[in-house]
C-alpha cells in the first residue's frame, strides 16, 4: 500500500501475469480435451487454471487491498432479547392455549395424522416375517450345484478342497450360499447327531459370516480354518465351524447333506440355525 507507485505497478503486472497463466491453462485444457483428452494432463491444467485465479486473488488482497484491522462493536446476544417481545408472543400464545380443550382435541387429530402417515413408511418394505429364519434349502432334497448350475460331484473335490455351492435352481442366492469342504473323515469332531451330516468327510457350512454377513471367503486348509475377509472372524471347520478368533460369536450354521449313489450331494433340509448376522428374536425359530 505504502510503496511507490512503480512498486504497485510491478505488483499489478505480476498478478496480471498469474491470471494470464490461468487463462492459458484453461485454453490449453480445452485443446487437450478436443485432441482426445488425457485425464492427468487435464487435471494438471485445470489445477493450474484454478490455482492461478486463487493465487492471483489472494495476492491482490495481500498487496493491493487495505490490510488495516477494523473494529466493530459487539453487543451481547442476550441484550437484543426483548422481554416485551417475549411477553407479547406469550400473550398471543396464551389467547390460543387457554382454549385447552380445543388444543387437546387438535393434538389428538394431529396424533391421528401421524398414525396415518405411518402407512407410506410401512410400505417401504415387507414385514420381516420368517425370511431371516429360512433359506431355499428348506425345501429339502435339493442338489448342491456350483456357480455354473451343474451338480457338484464328490470326485470334483480333492482332499482339503473347497467349493461354493448353491441349491439347484437358486444359483447366486445370497442367503443360500454354502461352502462344501472335504477333510479327512477321522479329523472331524462334530456333535454326535451331526456326524451323519458330513458323509465321508464332506462337510457343508453357510458361507455367510455370523458376524456381519460377509461371505467367508478365505480357507487355510492346513489349519482347517475359514476366515472372513471383512473382520477376520475365524471358524474351525473340524468342530462344527465354531468361532476361534475375531468378532463372530456363533458358529457358521451347518447344512445337513447326503451323498447320493451317483456321487452328487443333496441337502436334507435347511441349515442348523438362521444364517448370517444375528437379530434379536433369532432363537424363536
Amino acid at each position: 500500500m505504502s510503496g511507490p507507485v512503480t512498486g504497485t505497478r510491478r505488483t499489478e503486472r505480476v498478478i496480471a501475469a498469474i491470471f494470464g497463466v490461468s487463462a492459458i491453462a484453461g485454453i490449453a485444457l480445452l485443446a487437450v480435451y478436443l485432441a482426445g483428452g488425457q485425464t492427468q494432463l487435464e487435471a494438471v491444467l485445470l489445477a493450474i487454471c484454478l490455482g492461478g485465479i486463487g493465487i492471483g486473488i489472494i495476492a491482490w488482497s495481500q498487496w493491493l487491498l487495505p490490510g488495516a484491522l477494523h473494529v466493530e462493536p459487539r453487543h451481547p446476544v442476550a441484550e437484543s432479547a426483548s422481554a416485551d417481545a417475549e411477553r407479547e408472543i406469550l400473550e398471543e400464545e396464551h389467547s390460543i392455549t387457554r382454549r385447552s380443550f380445543l388444543v387437546r382435541a387438535l393434538g389428538g387429530a394431529l396424533g391421528g395424522l401421524v398414525a396415518a402417515l405411518a402407512i407410506p413408511v410401512l410400505s417401504l418394505g415387507p414385514s420381516p416375517g420368517r425370511g431371516l429364519f429360512e433359506t431355499p434349502w428348506r425345501k429339502g432334497g435339493l442338489r448342491l450345484v456350483g456357480l455354473d448350475g451343474t451338480p457338484i460331484k464328490a470326485t470334483d473335490l480333492p482332499l482339503e478342497g473347497i467349493v461354493t455351492a448353491f441349491p439347484e435352481g437358486y444359483v447366486g442366492t445370497a442367503d443360500a450360499q454354502t461352502l462344501l469342504i472335504r477333510v479327512a473323515p477321522d479329523l472331524l469332531k462334530l456333535a454326535q447327531d451331526r456326524m451323519a451330516w458330513a458323509p465321508e468327510g464332506y462337510v457343508a457350512y453357510s458361507k455367510l459370516c455370523t458376524h456381519a454377513g460377509c461371505p467367508v471367503g478365505l480357507y487355510r486348509a492346513a489349519e482347517h480354518r475359514l476366515i472372513c475377509p471383512c473382520h477376520q472372524s475365524t471358524f474351525n471347520v473340524l468342530d462344527g465351524a465354531q468361532p476361534v478368533f475375531g468378532p463372530a460369536g456363533r458358529p457358521l450354521p451347518q447344512l445337513p447333506i447326503q451323498l447320493q449313489p451317483d456321487g452328487t450331494f443333496i441337502a436334507l433340509g435347511d441349515f442348523s440355525a438362521p444364517v448370517g448376522p444375528a437379530f434379536w428374536d433369532m432363537t424363536d425359530g
Binding site: 485425464t39 494438471v44 484454478l50 490455482g51 485465479i53 486463487g54 493465487i55 486473488i57
Partner: peptide, 18 residues
C-alpha cells in the same frame, strides 16, 4: 475467501487427477 475457494478447487483437482 474467493482466493481460498479457487485454491481448494485447484488442490482437489490436482490430487484427484493424479
Amino acid at each position: 475467501s474467493l482466493g481460498l475457494f479457487f485454491l481448494t478447487a485447484a488442490v482437489i483437482v490436482l490430487v484427484a487427477g493424479l
